[in-house]
């Protein structure tokens, strides 16, 4: 039996429970296969070309995808907007046609505008992987978050049925929140979004999750607390009065964390604003914080995505 996730990964909505679990299983197997190897490389995607097309700076995500592709022996080309024809005004469509003509098998795109990956997918024949688009989605982040939760709280198997995940922060501008709400629901978890009303989108009531304005009442019973980055500049647009007030009402510090369960995990997609949405003490808490583990798992999850999109046959169960 094999499971296919289709040609592109543009949104968490592209995955159902079966394909999402298969993807996490594949990531776990790839992770196991790499462990203890002297040469961290599998020959799976030898001869394939993966292009990292980054319109936004993101060393973390780009490096993660680059490592993932290289560990599968793919050729990797990094194409960043700075210093390329893109900065000279070339359109996304023309860039797409150029990459197409060069024979790329997959394009990993990070873009500051929502929906750019979906547009790109209409212009090229290869696979498109959304590595974060505007305020829309970041599906591989949600996958690595789910992978981390599953490994820590579900013995690395099955889905996330029954988990209670509290997501806190700037939901309005967060592609991580959108991808996580969808994927976590698909995997059976309950999601609670916590934010000041100004940082929740109009229309959030239709999302498959609970919404709260009060962090303290949301924390008891949470299995995972995921803190989102909040840019300090938001206060100049009156989303909140000051960084200090935001931190007091919605920041996670040791005192708040003490209200959580023993097993509660703290996650953050990075980069963190220490002292703003999360205190240094919490971020570095070796027992609760899995923030660096998220980064590690990101490589395995992205390997699984590339593998399932490019190996052409989906994932073969062992």
């Amino acid at each position: 039996m094999s499971v296919s996730i289709g040609r592109h990964l543009l949104s968490s909505q592209d995955l159902n429970n079966e394909t999402a679990v298969a993807l996490l299983d594949t990531a776990a197997r790839l992770d196991a296969a790499m462990t203890g190897r002297e040469v961290k490389k599998l020959p799976t995607l030898r001869g394939r070309t993966v292009v990292n097309l980054f319109y936004e700076d993101s060393t973390r995500t780009r490096t993660s995808f680059e490592l993932a592709a290289k560990r599968l022996s793919a050729d990797v080309v990094n194409f960043s907007a700075k210093g390329s024809s893109v900065s000279k005004g070339e359109s996304l469509k023309d860039t797409a046609l150029t990459l197409q003509a060069m024979g790329s098998d997959a394009v990993v795109i990070r873009h500051h505008l929502s929906g750019a990956p979906r547009r790109l997918a209409t212009w090229i024949e290869g696979s498109v992987i959304n590595a974060g688009d505007g305020t829309h989605e970041h599906p591989t982040q949600a996958l690595l978050d789910a992978f981390t939760m599953r490994r820590r709280l579900r013995d690395g198997e099955g889905d996330l049925k029954g988990l209670r995940v509290v997501v806190v922060g700037d939901v309005l501008h967060s592609r991580v929140a959108r991808s996580n709400v969808r994927l976590l629901r698909t995997l059976g978890a309950e999601v609670v979004l916590v934010a000041p009303p100004t940082l929740l989108p109009v229309g959030v009531a239709e999302w498959p999750c609970e919404v709260s304005y009060d962090l303290d009442s949301a924390l008891p019973g949470a299995d995972v607390v995921m803190m989102l980055r909040v840019q300090r500049e938001r206060m100049t647009a009156s989303y909140f009065p000051s960084a200090r007030e935001y931190s007091r009402r919605y920041g996670l510090d040791a005192a708040r964390l003490a209200k959580c369960e023993e097993h509660t995990l703290v996650m953050h997609p990075g980069p963190m604003n220490r002292g703003m949405e999360i205190s240094a003490e919490v971020a570095d808490d070796p027992r609760r914080s899995v923030i660096t583990e998220q980064v590690t798992n990101g490589v395995s999850v992205r390997m699984a995505v590339l593998y399932m999109l490019l190996s052409g046959e989906g994932v073969a169960n062992e």
Partner: peptide, 18 residues
Amino acid sequence: AQLNEGVVSARLGLTGWP
């Protein structure tokens, strides 16, 4: 602003036009 502010703009991550 990019799209009518409501359920669809929230889902698509497009800045709402109220």
